[in-house]
Amino acid sequence: MMNLAVVLPVLAVLIGIRFAKPSMLGWVTAWWLAAWVVLDFGFAVPVPKTVVKEFMGIISLALAAYVTSDPQRWREVREPTTAFLTERKFLPLLVLVTLAIPAAVAASIYFDMTAPAQAPIFGRTVHPAPPATLTVHEVTHDMQTLDNPYRKLEASDPAAFAVHVEAGRKIYYENCFYCHGDLMQGGGMFAHALNPIPTNFQDSGTIAMLQESFLFWRVSKGGPGLPEEGGPWMSAMPAWENFLTEEEIWEVILFLYDFTEQRPRALHVASGGEGH
């Protein structure tokens, strides 16, 4: 997402400029710089340089079109520019700028050509859309209606519910905590060797916003069961249907919610994909 430490100050400056009423040239320059700063530094996941260049080209054209579409604006930009290029008092600065621009271009080429090569980055989808139906241990489920069979015990028979949660706890600490960790923050003893890193269940953006059926899909089918956008070749999440019964998978899901004190997203809010 956005890097607020960069975006908010830029917004503040732009708002300030709105009230300072600078010249048209100042205004155009400020917007051009603001766009560049946001594109290059404003995103948590860095935007590739080529994309930044492409967008800056478009933005430059747009600003040029804006300025030249009105004779008044055009004059406001043109006059100070002409003065800078011709008047004697600006000469030292003009020489400096004239030399600085090619120097900057040369430096950019140098860094481009000598930068260490970067491995291709794969932006995987963390919660891809689940399939319509799911077959686990030869039983086919409709994902729209699939729900944790033990969930209703929470209200109707808390003692029986607690037994299932405890069974899930045992399963978790026999199978899951090596990666997802004791605190379910994804910091297990093997986590440092994994790419992608294990999911942090304490994060409000994970199990709290998912239905239990989604977890059942992810647990039973694991990494190999992901659609292509989820990177099925790199996730180390096992397909737990090979290790656990259906009941055990539901029990460990109960435990995930119980331990983290999160609530699963209710079934009736179902709206298909969870992609984000």
């Binding site: 002409t82 030399l99 120097a103 080429i109």
Partner: peptide, 29 residues
Amino acid sequence: VSPVGPMVKTAGGVLLAELLLILWVRRRV
């Protein structure tokens, strides 16, 4: 590939374009 060649070529081109622009503006003025 040594970066020096492309650096000199591109920077030289940019400098030339700048000088031409400045000359053109000055002449018109």
